[in-house]
Write a protein that binds this DNA or RNA. Structure first.
Length: 717
RNA sequence: GGGUGAUUAGCUCAGUGGUUUAGAGUGCUUCGUUGACAUCGAAGAGGUCGCUGGUUCAAUUCCAGCAUCACCCACCA
């Protein structure tokens, strides 16, 4: 054995050894009667290499899988990658731009094909990275969210939602990014504080003596006004309700109405109603049967309905509208005003609430048979503990979000993703979902004047079905029955709503069962300035680069110790060095033991009272380790074994045994003690540091079939 | 506006269902090159566990309030 542990020499070799053994496949494990244990890997996006933060999920899940495998369970860790619709399209467009090209110059099919190839390349990279990190997942079951069979499952769900009337196409106010020219769900909007102005605008009544003053931050939407609303309890305006006023930019007459939703205390207590450009206004408009004047086009420019603002973009239109109001003496005053404005989470462009035809999942609508909504289904299972969220306080966050949830917009005006198998009819204006067979007539009016829907699905709609879609489409027909519901869903807290909540809703809806029993939310790795790692910020650390220098085992320990569920943490190169030293310590302590085991027969010999004490203590450590791992305390478990191995086994026990091993009388005893404690330590360390432990395991003399050929399947303690 | 979390050694963080000297890594100080390891060993310095109250025989830990920071959610135009 070398004097210093060199991970570069062993890691690839060891991974190949594992792969060759077939033990990543649950049905190839020696224990045929083991209980199933399954984790579906959160599929990394197939648009970029993994970063160090993703090393956290790989390590945590691998620890759980390796631990359960050693406990004799039939363990399946199912890997996959996500096509990541919008995200990937953005990344790919950026790449094209660098090459001086643009996706707009490409035909739809051509573009799709190019992105397809791009993602396939990235999938290979991700796979290699996962292997390098030691992920003991079953590659024979690897999946991609765009696999034909997965898409089929997604379409079945869509059809089912359609039949249950939980899916509808409707013209609603949606979050629209004028730059990316697509709508988003509520989650993709990021609110940021922005300084603006609150404009007080006077609307004159027919009868020139009377007027009403309205406060608005968006004077450019005045041509879209169809009413002025006041609260029915507001005494100031009692007389005015029912009157009409002249809107001061395009000079149309609009009524003054009353509606409960208006806040008496804000501004002047009078609200201009622009149903096509604000969600509250849209609601009020619906209640009062008002027209929605769509003055803003999807290109982010105003149209002819906006009168003098026609042709302008939002910023220019705002300036011009203020000018016009000033000229007309309709602008009473301006106030500085800070408020939260929605931005596109990708490009920071201000999100426009705009009226569009989109596909929605009615998450709060009750199903006729159960009288429960998708939301109810999800809330119930968390409430009655069928699904446990770790850390617990995220359950509160979950409930809070679920309470405020609204219909989920699942259509995107992008090109990369799963197409929505829908048609809309030009004659009757209705839409319908149809996944099988040719469609040549409208199902409502029989018109032949129908078009396919050009939109694609929100990527979370397909990944929301991942746990059952992957198992249902597995090559092995038994998989779904055996492994569903899965055991643990391990992911970052940042996608609790995006992903976990949707998996719970869709999982129960589609299969009648929960998709997983435990949700473990890990903390996110941040850089020294506590920023989230992202490619655009340029602060990503490549786990492979760092693993090449210090070894994968060291990187894994760094990512686990000090990382508790739900709270973020910072890593440093110093920390990695510390665990590299630990790997070397394991190596050298083992080297010492092995050097002194040459004439050892593996047999237990009579123990001294002191030895018994050592073993008693070891038993306590083992119990604690098992307890920590069973309770998802990975950091504590890692720290415990680290400390025991280094400061008890290496520093104390080995030092004591050095004397006894030189004394022929005591030699056998000492050998036994060292051998036994070392092998138990290797087992306990293996889920955390699989490479160095397996490498050493391969060098330990085998005593009559008592031990497994590979540590990966050695019995846990 | 609503909510959640954090505040513990110079730094990065654990931990405590309430009870002797509160932990780790890293950093720092002193000593040590006897064949497992200098990616090492031995010894050591370093914390009124954010503030103020309450419950208690006993609180860093439970409760309330406050302060600061971070994050999430939200249709006050």
């Amino acid at each position: 054995m070398d004097k210093i542990y060199e991970p570069q020499k062993t890691e690839q070799k060891i991974y190949r050894l594992w792969k060759k053994s077939g033990y990543f496949n649950p049905y190839k494990l020696p224990n045929k009667k083991g209980e199933p244990f399954c984790i579906i890997m959160p599929p990394p996006n197939a648009n970029a290499p993994l970063h160090i933060g993703q090393g956290v999920f790989v390590t945590l899940q691998d620890i759980m899988i390796r631990y359960q495998r050693m406990k004799g369970k039939k363990t399946l860790w199912l890997p996959g990658t996500d096509h990541a619709g919008f995200e990937t399209q953005v990344v790919f467009e950026k790449k094209l731009k660098k090459e001086g090209k643009s996706g707009l110059d490409m035909l739809r099919d051509e573009f799709y094909k190019a992105v397809w190839e791009y993602t396939q390349k990235n999938r290979k990279v991700a796979r290699k990275q996962l292997e390098q990190l030691g992920a003991s997942c079953d590659w024979s079951r690897e999946k991609f969210t765009l696999d034909k069979d997965i898409q089929k499952v997604v379409y079945q769900t869509l059809e089912r939602l359609w039949k249950d009337k939980l899916l509808y196409r409707g013209k609603r106010i949606v979050n629209y990014c004028p730059k990316h020219k697509t709508a988003f769900s509520d989650l993709e909007v990021k609110y940021k504080e922005e300084k603006g102005k609150l404009y007080f605008v006077k609307y004159k009544c027919r009868d020139k003596n009377k007027s009403i003053i309205v406060a608005t931050t968006r004077p450019e939407t005045i041509p879209g006004d169809v009413a002025i609303a006041v609260n029915p309890k507001d005494k100031r305006y009692k007389e005015l309700v029912g009157e009409s006023v002249i809107e001061p930019i395009t000079k149309r007459e609009v009524p003054i109405i009353s509606d409960e939703a208006v806040d008496i205390d804000f501004g002047t207590g009078a609200l201009k109603i622009t149903p096509a450009h604000d969600s509250l206004d849209f609601e009020i408009g619906q209640r009062h049967n008002l027209e929605a004047r769509e003055t803003l086009g999807f290109d982010g420019h105003f149209n002819e309905l906006a009168g003098p603002l026609a042709g302008l973009n939002i910023v220019d239109a705002r300036k011009k509208s203020v000018d016009i109001l000033r000229k007309n003496k309709a602008l009473v005053k301006e106030e500085d005003y800070t408020h939260e404005v929605g931005h596109c989470y990708k490009c920071e462009t201000v999100i426009e609430p705009i009226l569009m035809n989109q596909w929605f999942v009615a998450v709060t609508k009750l199903l006729p048979e159960t009288k429960k909504s998708l939301r109810d289904l999800a809330v119930d299972v968390v409430k009655n503990k069928k699904i446990k969220i770790i850390p617990k306080h995220f359950e509160k966050v979950f409930f809070h979000w679920m309470k405020n949830i609204k219909d989920w917009n699942i259509s995107r005006q992008i090109r990369w993703g799963i197409p929505i198998p829908a048609y809309y009819c030009d004659d009757c204006g209705k839409s319908f979902i149809k996944i099988k067979g040719k469609v040549s007539n409208c199902i409502y009016c029989k018109s032949r004047n129908i078009k396919g829907d050009p939109d694609v699905l929100d990527t979370w709609f397909s990944s929301g079905q991942w746990p059952f879609a992957t198992l249902l489409t597995s090559k092995n027909k038994k998989d779904f029955k055996t492994f569903y519901p899965t055991d643990v869903m391990e992911t970052g807290w940042d996608i609790l709503f995006f992903w976990v909540a949707r998996m719970i809703m869709l999982g129960i809806y589609c299969t009648g069962k929960i998709p997983f029993k435990t949700v473990y939310l890990h903390g996110l790795v941040r850089d020294k300035d506590r920023q989230k790692m992202s490619k655009s910020k340029g602060n990503v650390i490549d786990p492979l680069v760092i693993a090449k220098i210090y070894g994968t085992d060291a990187v894994r320990m760094t990512l686990i110790i000090g990382n508790t569920a739900g709270s973020d943490f910072i890593i440093s190169e110093e920390k990695i060095k510390g665990y590299r030293n630990f790997a070397n310590k394991i190596w050298n302590a083992s080297r010492f033991v092995l050097m002194n085991l040459e004439d050892f027969d593996g047999k237990k010999s009579a123990l001294t009272a002191q030895d018994k004490k050592l073993f008693k203590n070891l038993e306590i450590i083992k119990k604690k380790m098992t307890h920590h791992l069973d309770n998802f305390h990975f950091s504590l478990a890692g720290e415990l074994i680290y400390h025991y191995f280094w400061h008890t086994f290496a520093d104390k026990i080995i030092e004591e045994m050095k004397n006894r091993i030189r004394d022929d009388k005591d030699k056998k005893q000492a050998q036994y003690v060292l051998y036994k404690i070392l092998t138990d330590c290797l087992k306990m360390l293996h889920p955390f540091m699989p490479f160095v432990t397996e490498e050493i395991w391969q060098k330990i003399p085998q005593y009559k079939g008592k031990m497994a050929d590979l540590l990966i399947i050695e019995k846990w303690l």
